[in-house]
């Protein structure tokens, strides 16, 4: 059926803009907005209560307070983000701490991580997808402190995967030897979530 059906009378309003050619994955459209999607209420955690932990199959377990975390070297990155609900947003500017910085001097004994968050949200990723300059714990967006509705004080930023992997309100990563499905991954969404292969749902 795919590839043969034509929607009668559909012309499509937005053809690919040459300026963004090759930057919009299949099934996505570009939006200037920054939609907010969350499954429940927005947690409001003050920096005083906030910390970030690397635990599980790691040696040693590490924990940073907000002050310690903010004293780490930071990157400013400009990336495109892709939400499984079909919107993509180009050239978003974030400031955060690279996961490479957080994992420096730590010996992981597993190939997967589960991000855990205020509010109970979790998401799973292969460890190799959050190292080598691919992931950050972001605390600023567009030169402003990250708003709570967008995941502040800090969220995971893994722009090469669908944005549900970029967990809001993140408080740490647990390294695991086996891949453990997170919140949406247990509810029918794809385990890995590569937007370029349109891995939205299980089996895609």
């Amino acid at each position: 059926m795919a590839g043969s059906f034509i929607s009668r009378g559909f012309r499509g309003r937005r053809r690919e803009d040459p300026a963004v050619a090759g930057r919009v994955p299949p099934g996505q459209y570009v939006t200037p907005d920054f939609p907010v999607l969350s499954a429940g209420p927005t947690p409001h955690t003050s920096p005083r209560e906030w910390d970030f932990t690397l635990n599980g199959a790691v040696d040693p377990v590490r924990r940073w307070t907000w002050e310690e975390f903010r004293a780490l070297p930071r990157d400013t990155v400009t990336v495109d983000i892709h939400c499984v609900t079909k919107w993509s947003k180009l050239d978003t500017v974030w400031e955060g701490v690279s996961l490479d910085t957080l994992f420096a001097g730590i010996e992981p004994r597993g190939a997967f991580v589960t991000a855990f968050c205020d509010g109970g949200y979790t998401t799973n990723l292969p460890l190799r997808d959050v190292l080598d300059g691919q992931a950050w714990i972001a605390f600023a967006y567009g030169e402003e402190p990250l708003a709570a509705e967008h995941g502040g004080p800090a969220r995971l930023l893994v722009p090469h995967l669908y944005f549900w992997k970029s967990a809001k309100w993140v408080r740490g990563l647990t390294v695991t030897e086996r891949d453990r499905p997170g919140f949406w991954e247990s509810l029918g969404y794809h385990d890995y979530g590569d937007p370029w292969r349109e891995q939205r749902y299980q089996g895609d």
Partner: peptide, 12 residues
Amino acid sequence: MAGTAVPGRLAW
């Protein structure tokens, strides 16, 4: 937070 998993591929 358990839910109903969607088995197999969601076909068009």
